[in-house]
């Protein structure tokens, strides 16, 4: 059993390396700006969803308020850069650190809540933060922050002429989020989380430090999501509260994992690769008139997949490989 698991993990790592290499080569053949933009967003959501999955999937604490950490990352980077001239790279680390600390501070009271009480608490906390930022004049209030253009460079992490550097950063971020998850899966944390998710009371009685393991998951998850937020701020170079901290981000982060397979290594990647291009394409082809067809397609897809494949799209793959193994 153990060797089988080790084999699977090695295979996962090889597959991931191949996919990353292929993804890295794609821009050599695709020069279309619109397609590049969709690829950047797809990679970003894969990274975000992978990070969300650590807390909500592996540890089972369903958060619908992760927009808070995304927004914190974006705002920390943008404010440090525009007000104090701090380079975005430091802003990114600062945003990640602040988010991790806040996630633990909020986790302290919240992790005592169960089920729907917890989910609603996460929504409500993100909503309070959104309202506060909307009313915080120093941070641009509802108007937001325009990140001034200071010339293209990796040092300032700003690129106006080509989106390619953003693509490679997003790819790196997605790879890091995947690797962190891969590594955590086989660490003691990974086992603790699964125990906490399946049965917190039993886990507690077997000596799993339930509370601390939830706090750990929250910190890692928030840190990575905040880095994604910092990246997004640089990528779009203009942020306002609704566009980085709105509830839709919490949802958009959760959906790839939910559709792909929550609490699985490949679910978020698979979900993002299908969902994000589909959303962007329906939006530009049928949704342009503001008639809501994109919403109908999107919503129907969510209903259909969550009802037909409660374990997500990855379950189709494991069904197929299961059949192969049974035939062997």
């Amino acid at each position: 059993m153990d060797t089988h698991f080790a084999q699977r993990r090695r295979r996962d790592l090889i597959v991931a390396a191949c996919l990353a290499a292929i993804a890295a080569l794609v821009p050599l053949f695709v020069k279309d700006v619109y397609v590049e933009n969709i690829m950047v967003l797809t990679l970003m959501y894969a990274a975000l969803s992978q990070s969300w999955n650590i807390l909500s999937g592996y540890c089972g604490q369903i958060s619908l308020g992760h927009a808070l950490y995304f927004g914190l990352g974006a705002y920390t980077t943008a404010l440090l850069f525009t007000k104090f001239g701090v380079l975005p790279w430091f802003g990114m680390l600062a945003g990640g650190a602040i988010s991790a600390v806040i996630a633990m501070a909020l986790g302290y009271p919240c992790f005592r809540l169960r089920g729907h009480y917890f989910v609603i608490a996460t929504i409500v906390i993100a909503e309070i933060a959104l309202l506060l930022i909307q009313n915080w004049d120093w941070a641009g209030a509802a108007l937001g922050i325009d990140i001034p253009v200071r010339g293209d460079s990796w040092l300032k992490f700003q690129f106006t002429r080509s989106k390619l550097p953003y693509f490679y950063f997003a790819l790196a971020l997605a790879c890091i989020a995947w690797l962190v998850t891969w590594w955590l899966e086989d660490s003691k944390w990974g086992y603790w989380w699964r125990a906490v998710k399946d049965n917190p009371d039993a886990a507690e009685s077997l000596g799993v430090v339930v509370f601390n393991s939830k706090m750990g998951a929250a910190a890692v998850s928030a840190f990575l999501v905040a880095v994604g937020g910092s990246f997004y701020a640089q990528f779009v170079s203009y942020i306002d509260p609704e566009s980085v901290m709105g509830f839709q981000f919490s949802l958009l982060m959760a959906l790839p994992a939910v559709l792909g397979g929550i609490g699985t290594l490949w679910g978020p990647v698979l979900g993002a690769v299908i969902l994000i291009p589909l959303t962007e394409l329906t939006r530009s082809f049928v949704g342009g008139s503001g008639r809501g067809v994109d919403l109908i397609v999107y919503g129907a897809l969510i209903v259909a997949i969550s009802l037909a494949l409660p374990k997500g799209l990855v379950s189709v793959f494991s069904m197929l490989s299961g059949r192969k193994e049974a035939a062997r």
């Binding site: 369903i62 989910v119 949802l251 959906l255 939910v258 929550i262 503001g290 008639r291 809501g292 067809v293 994109d294 919403l295 109908i296 397609v297 999107y298 919503g299 129907a300 897809l301 969510i302 209903v303 259909a304 969550s306 009802l307 409660p310």
Partner: peptide, 19 residues
């Protein structure tokens, strides 16, 4: 999860249809 997201999806469809 299935309950949350199937009704969430339904909400999005209803909003789209209303639009």
């Amino acid at each position: 999860m299935v309950q949350i997201f199937s009704t969430f999806g339904l909400a999005i469809v209803m909003r789209g249809l209303a639009q």
